[in-house]
Design a binder for these strands. Structure first.
Lengths: 247, 247
DNA sequence: CGATCAATTGACTTAGCTCAAAGCATGTGG
DNA sequence: CCACATGCTTTGAGCTAAGTCAATTGATCG
């Protein structure tokens, strides 16, 4: 059993165990994995620092984070790219990379479990079900990344922003009705960087969506999606929760 | 041992075995995997058709292929997106998807091994090293996908085309010197669809690169990279901005 | 209650898209 | 083997969506 570090560490570990396949939550393998895990807490805007020599697997127990890449070369000013936003329950692979380093930055206070990928896999090799669990999640992540790439490809600013809001709503879970309240943990800059748009364009899109009656905003981070089917349509007739209406 | 289907089938299977971790190439597990593999040959432009109900793993033994996604809904005209190009030795995961179907289309005659992902993993569970092998490749694919997504984000047409050429050269293997000959198996349209650009823009970029003395073209598909360092720089820097200092 | 940074709005510029026409390869039939 | 036909590619001329620059408004915190 993992040594008692602190109540919150135990809490994070418990969440990790719970996310594993049911029958493995309390297996010896799970114990081993927990034992090699490093428990980290990040303050808002703090970056996860870890040995850049090894690949890492990071499990998010609580909080939201962004995975960013910044070209190491020259131009400091702009050019920060947000590759993905991550939420509790996500397992992220952070590969070491020579030219552009990838970093995980907390959007709000985060609780993480960090594993060395190699050591994790060495242990997981003893239990193929765990290996398969990680593999399945990776394939899904790959699939999601490809789907998003598809969208980045040729979509308008309106479509990207609408799609972003829809996908945030999917995470929030409030997909039930037509409307949905969201608290966005990320700034407009983060949103822009993740969509390949400028903050100004993002802001203008928010304004237009508000004027079209599709959303309502309040303060920086509170957004209310008033008509999700219409939003989904604005996003390009993709995934709408219940009703996909033809055009 | 897998039943002898045909000389080419055996050839494809041999390549698959060779790509596995050394000590497993002739293991019983490898035999089992080969036994459940479906050997397919595709003509140029032919799509891989397989049961859309199950996820598939596809190993490319020979030929080049593109992974495309087309939004199922309405608009036929444009909106075909090329998610990735694949080459011999690649292992691709084709997930079934309800709204937008992903298809693998041959760019030239292809030789493929197709596995049901579930059955593959069921067998691979007997040999964690194979599971880990697939996982490692998936994480790399994810990483590549993210890197490309980053580029799709905010990069100019020039940067995208230059980067595309560089990455094609990496596949060709002729990375040694400053120059490199490439035979592109894909059309300008495919290139455009993969970069989120129109064929016209791709063509114009080729022209400009030619006029800048960075490449030389001959016919549709032959491209000669004359100055790869300069190309790499064009792929990286060259922030559009108001002040475009010519090269 | 200012100080400070994020977000919005406006005016202007431009990269890349659209539409349209002309050149080239590649394959086919005489 | 050559002429033709077809589809790919290149080139050209506007247009528009989104970026840049700049100034204002709004929120958040010591």
């Amino acid at each position: 059993m993992a040594k008692r570090l602190s109540p919150t560490a135990d809490n994070g570990i418990a969440k990790f165990r719970a996310s594993l396949p049911d029958d493995l939550a309390h297996s010896a393998i799970a114990d081993e994995l927990c034992a090699i895990s490093q428990h980290k807490r990040l303050m808002k805007s703090e970056a996860l620092v870890c040995d850049p020599q090894t690949d890492r697997l990071v499990y998010i127990a609580a909080g939201a984070a962004k995975l960013v890449a910044q070209p190491s070369a020259g131009s400091e000013s702009n050019a920060m790219q947000v590759l993905a936003f991550h939420f509790p329950g996500d397992m992220i692979s952070v590969l070491r990379e020579r030219d552009s380093d990838f970093r995980l930055i907390a959007l709000d206070p985060c609780e993480l479990l960090v594993f060395s990928t190699d050591r994790f896999l060495d242990i997981a090799q003893g239990e193929p079900a765990i290996l398969r669990w990680v593999l399945t999640r990776s394939l899904q992540a790959l699939h999601r990344s490809r789907t998003r790439m598809m969208q980045m490809g040729h979509k308008s600013a309106r479509q990207r922003v609408a799609d972003f809001l829809i996908s945030m709503a999917e995470h929030g879970g409030g997909l039930a009705g037509k409307s949905c309240r969201l608290i966005l943990p990320m700034s407009r800059r983060d949103i822009g960087d993740s969509l390949g748009l400028t903050i100004e364009t993002v802001s203008r899109q928010f304004t237009e969506l508000r004027e079209a009656g599709l959303i309502k905003t309040q303060g920086r981070s509170l957004v209310q999606l008033l008509d999700m089917p219409a939003l989904a349509q604005a996003a390009g007739q993709h995934r709408c929760a219940g009703t996909v209406q033809h055009i």
